[in-house]
Computed example of a mutant assay.
Amino acid sequence: MLTMCLLAAVLSAPDAAVAKAAVSGPVRVIDGDTLDIGGTRVRLFGIDAPEADQTCRTEQGQVWACGAWVTDQVRTRFGGRQAVCEPITTDRYGRVVARCSVRGEDVGQSLVSDGLAFAYRRFSQDYVLAEKGAAVRDMGLHASRVQNPSQFRQTRAVGRIPENRACVIKGNISRAGAKIYHVPGQRDYERTGIRPETGERWFCSVTEARAAGWRAAKR
């Protein structure tokens, strides 16, 4: 029995190593705090940026697309560059939560210091001082009135977060009437809301979605 236990431990060790292995590759920016690194979806640890469709207000009350602006700024700064990420955990969407660097520069630190993201205090205190410094200097988002990104997500979360964790595939119906399903990790998964009153629904498997007449999202 002891021998079998030791063998099981040895066989399981590579999986644990893979889970913690560094992720590296060119950066493709999804939004202000989410990147594709060499094909792996990565959520930057310790920071929170406005959602891509989030808006802010200037001190004069003018609404502007701050989420899209942040995404563009991050893309200009890091898009296409080589990054190395140290995985910390995996979130409920299957993304690798990691601390990333580009040529030795901590990406999260850089974004918070320049007012492009906020310290995500719920999970880390690493970038709190950087955020305070950016606020004092009215850097980036701190020059506007911006809703906390997590609060923004909560206000639009109805229909976006599965109630049954075994059924997380989103069966969406487009404006043109196309039935499209999204699986966790795809580009539009998080922003897709399910409205049962319009015929949209949750699926527990890809097979179930296809059998019901839904096709896979292209991205």
Rank of each mutant, 00 (worst) to 15 (best):
T198Q: 09
T40F: 05
L6R: 07
K132Q: 15
R210N: 14
R219I: 07
G80N: 14
I88F: 02
E51F: 06
C66Q: 12
A13C: 08
T90F: 13
L6H: 05
G32N: 06
R215C: 01
S144F: 14
S205G: 02
H182C: 01
R187Y: 12
A98V: 04
D91S: 04
E163F: 12
S113P: 05
K218H: 08
R156M: 10
G108D: 03
R145I: 14
T40E: 12
R99A: 14
A178C: 00
A130T: 01
G115L: 09
P196Y: 09
R160L: 09
A13D: 02
R95V: 00
A65L: 11
W69N: 05
G140S: 10
L7G: 04
P26W: 00
N164A: 05
F78P: 00
R92N: 11
D48I: 03
V97P: 02
E105C: 04
F45G: 00
V18M: 12
G61H: 10
D15W: 13
G108P: 08
R191P: 00
G94L: 10
A49N: 03
G199R: 05
A19F: 13
G213Y: 11
R165I: 04
T198F: 11
V29R: 11
H182D: 01
D72H: 11
L44T: 06
G32C: 04
A49S: 14
G199E: 04
A52I: 14
A211R: 15
A143C: 02
A19T: 01
S144M: 10
V206P: 08
D188L: 11
Y120C: 04
R122F: 06
M139T: 02
K170T: 00
R121P: 00
